[in-house]
């Protein structure tokens, strides 16, 4: 780009995409506070009330959905971090027979498109009697991507450090918890964010595996809200705002790690 003026002009043009990205969410939040059925740009403070939010918590089990989503997200994040980093550690630092072949199998599972194995996975979970449980909701969230990610990081941990701990009589599990885990904290934060978003936003899997409304997640509850109350825009928008807020707040707080974490997921291919 030549000259300062054109630089400013181009920079200024990005106001348009920024507007397009943010404006719908602003309208969503504002509409959730009104009882309107048609869109209008004039919002006056007199229209605003929390009636939709009161209705959504009172007449629909949104608190229950929220709790379910939270439990699923926490279980998925804790387990994925633990299980993935254990395997990542093993593949990075242990030398056992068939290590290469096993890792190759892990990488193969990353390539399998989730939607193509939903049907047989549903059959397995039905046979195991796990439908309508939390286990069925968070178990498939765990995948080999976390293993791949943590392996990359653990490879950078010096062998001498682990060897020194062993000489001091540190047991294998203690070594992993006390030495490896603290060293790879940044990648675990990224993995947590990634897992959080995936499990919070998951839709087709809860849709298939839960048919008792007591087990519905927030995303699922939201989709039911619209099928029954399509024209009650304020109510639907209140539901979407509630669903939108938790990831958004985490995003505001952990913005850098967030973008890095999601960008890391691009390594998946």
């Amino acid at each position: 780009m030549r000259g300062k003026t054109s630089t400013y002009l181009v920079s200024l043009l990005f106001v348009v995409p920024v507007f397009f990205a943010i404006f719908p969410f602003v309208v969503m939040a504002l509409t959730s506070l009104t009882q309107r059925t048609t869109f209008n740009l004039r919002f006056s403070p007199r229209d605003f009330s929390l009636a939709n939010y009161i209705a959504i918590f009172r007449n629909f089990n949104f608190l229950g959905y929220f709790k379910n989503s939270l439990i699923v997200v926490i279980c998925a994040c804790v387990l994925n971090n633990l299980i993935a980093s254990m395997a990542g550690y093993s593949f990075a630092k242990k030398r056992f027979p068939f290590r290469k072949q096993l890792f190759w199998i892990y990488m193969l599972t990353i390539m399998i498109p989730g939607q193509a194995i939903t049907v047989p996975l549903y059959i397995i979970m039905t046979k195991l009697g796990l439908l309508n449980t939390y286990v069925v909701l968070f178990l498939p969230i765990i995948n080999a991507f976390g293993v791949f990610l943590t392996k990359q990081f653990i490879e950078a941990v010096p062998d001498d450090l682990l060897e020194a701990a062993r000489i001091d009589g540190c047991g294998e599990f203690l070594l992993y918890f006390r030495i490896v885990v603290p060293l790879i904290k940044p990648v675990l934060v990224s993995l947590t964010i990634f897992t959080f978003i995936t499990s919070w936003n998951d839709f087709i899997w809860p849709l298939i595996t839960t048919n008792e409304s007591a087990m519905y997640t927030l995303t699922l509850g939201l989709s039911l809200l619209q099928s029954n109350y399509t024209t009650n825009y304020g109510l639907v928008m209140a539901g979407t705002t509630i669903t939108f807020l938790p990831p958004f707040i985490v995003y505001l707080v952990l913005q850098r790690q967030f973008v890095e974490g999601i960008a890391l997921s691009g390594v998946k291919g």
Binding site: T219, Q226, T243, P247
Partner: peptide, 17 residues
């Protein structure tokens, strides 16, 4: 950062609004 906001929201939410 702004263009990333739609990314963190779920497809269901985006579809609904």
């Amino acid at each position: 950062s702004s263009l990333f906001i739609p990314v963190i929201t779920s497809m269901v939410l985006v579809g609904l609004i």
